[in-house]
């Protein structure tokens, strides 16, 4: 359940920004989370309500942009989407792949209420 500490880190970031911009609270938060980032989306949902309670995110609308995993085969150069961190190239069945995207774990934007 490291998702809870992820939520607490998001709360930390949001609190800092609200303070910096002298806003009142956060109206909407947009997150980029890759499907290979090691985050269980259901667990994140579960942790969210407890984690944001009494914080500037308490009533914020949350949008999660799920970023699908993409790899490039280092043998044949084919780019392919993956649902798990380590999948072989569909053409050469090789596991030596270069990671392209899917490990994102970031706050993209905050809409603040003043």
């Amino acid at each position: 359940m490291h998702e809870l500490s992820i939520v607490m880190s998001i709360v930390d970031l949001a609190e800092e920004q609200v303070k910096k911009h002298q806003a009142r609270e956060v109206d909407r938060i947009e997150l980029d989370i890759g499907t290979l980032a090691g985050i269980e989306f259901d667990a994140l949902d579960f942790a969210w309500d407890a984690g944001v309670k009494h914080s500037v995110l308490a009533s914020a609308e949350r949008q999660i942009n799920r970023i699908e995993g993409k790899m490039r085969c280092m043998k044949c150069g084919r780019e392919f989407t993956v649902t798990e961190p380590f999948q072989p190239c569909p053409d050469c069945n090789d596991y030596l792949n270069e990671f392209i995207q899917g490990k994102e774990l970031r706050v993209k934007s905050l809409t603040m209420k003043f």
């Binding site: 920004q17 609200v18 009142r24 970031r106 993209k108 934007s109 905050l110 809409t111 209420k113 003043f114």
Partner: peptide, 22 residues
């Protein structure tokens, strides 16, 4: 601890952050 008022202003602003959660 954060600014905590109870007014009804509807002024909002989007802040692009692109900040790593970890």
């Amino acid at each position: 601890a954060y600014p905590h008022q109870h007014g009804h202003s509807h002024d909002t602003r989007v802040i692009e952050m692109e900040m790593d959660i970890l």
